[in-house]
Amino acid sequence: MSSARKLLYPFSLLYGGVMQLRNELYDRGIFSSKEYEVPVIAVGNLSVGGTGKSPMVEYLISLLKDNYRVATLSRGYKRSSSGFLLLNGNEPAAEAGDEPLQFKSKFPEIMVAVDESRQHGIQELLIQAAPPDVIILDDAFQHRKVTAGLYILLTPYGNLYSDDLVLPAGNLREPKWGAKRADLVVVTKCPAKISSEAKQKIRARLKLQPGQELFFSSISYSEEIFGRKEVLPLKELQKRHFTLVTGIANPQPLVGYLKQHSLKFDHKAFPDHHNFTASEIKELRSKGLLLTTEKDYMRLKNDIPEEDLFYLPITTQIVDGKKVFEKAILDFAQKK
């Protein structure tokens, strides 16, 4: 922790105390929370920044979509619209949110909705002509007005919640003991060949509660890049100079992956969920070939010539215990 952030520690104690009081009021039933007949899975984290929520939501969609009517519900961070919106896939990212639009583009057969009120969003989903069998709440671990039936808590390998502090001195949205609400804890962005010793050390540091299950996952990058009408091998970029454009919390793993492939590129980094301005779009159009993330592609695809814009997909892989993890999800989906 930097010296400047250490000075903010008293404010962290205050903020953490407020969040803890809020959680206790929900736990005691003083603040009301609504449960639903339909299975609701909440995916989230304790910290701000990227923990791999979108790849995990896509993993769950892939697991469930062939046997259940699946819906995802997000707040649609930084979207220009408000209220409930059921996506058809043709909305601009600024209206729907980049991640929900990514889900709908990749899985057009599922229902994807946004609503800043999760209660209202679920209610609207359930009155559709063909209501969902399972609802996945994206980034909803702190949303206590809805009681999910299954909570999946993500924490990144290089920045475990157990080693962090509450905002503003640290990056936690709530005190670390909020993790007790989780049913499944997933350490994300692990090395693909994480050792048994490393896993044991992490388990000891997280201090899980009885009944909580721990899993480890890694991010897998595609060997192909995708444009609107063309798919190219990643190695094709060894022949061409390009600009990497990122608007994500931590682009360094992606940068490292591309450098491992001996690719030469410039990097234009923007804040997470960045809405590109007209002047920024103009500058990017002058760069020629652009490579970006799938999330950023949703915000750029209507403004950059299709022959110049490609994205590199990523997927989540459960390092071990995949069958146990998937069984927990499928067993829950079958409960109601």
Rank of each mutant, 00 (worst) to 15 (best):
F276T: 05
R203F: 06
K235W: 03
A169T: 10
Y157E: 06
L14W: 03
S218F: 12
L60Q: 00
A129H: 08
L167S: 06
M298E: 14
G44E: 11
G44Q: 07
Y311V: 02
L87Q: 05
L64Q: 01
P313M: 11
N88E: 09
A269R: 15
E213K: 12
R173K: 15
P210N: 00
I314N: 14
E280Q: 15
L86S: 05
L153Y: 05
R181T: 02
E326P: 09
D115P: 12
C190T: 13
E280G: 10
C190K: 14
K259C: 06
L208K: 11
T316C: 11
S117P: 07
E124H: 07
L284V: 06
N67I: 10
M19E: 09
I225T: 08
A129P: 01
D296N: 05
L154Y: 06
D331E: 07
V134L: 13
N302C: 08
Y257T: 11
G89L: 13
L25P: 05
S222H: 13
T293C: 10
I225D: 02
A182S: 08
L64V: 08
L289S: 06
T315N: 08
E236S: 13
S279D: 03
L263Y: 14
G17H: 03
I110Q: 04
S33N: 10
F265G: 13
Y9K: 09
V48H: 00
K282R: 15
P305I: 03
S286M: 10
L300D: 00
Q102I: 14
L21R: 14
D164T: 10
L7Q: 12
P253I: 03
D320C: 14
L153C: 10
E223C: 04
L206P: 03
L60A: 02
V186T: 05
I219V: 07
M56C: 03
V255H: 08
D138C: 13
A129M: 09
Q252N: 11
V186K: 04
H267G: 13
Q102R: 12
S196C: 10
L160T: 00
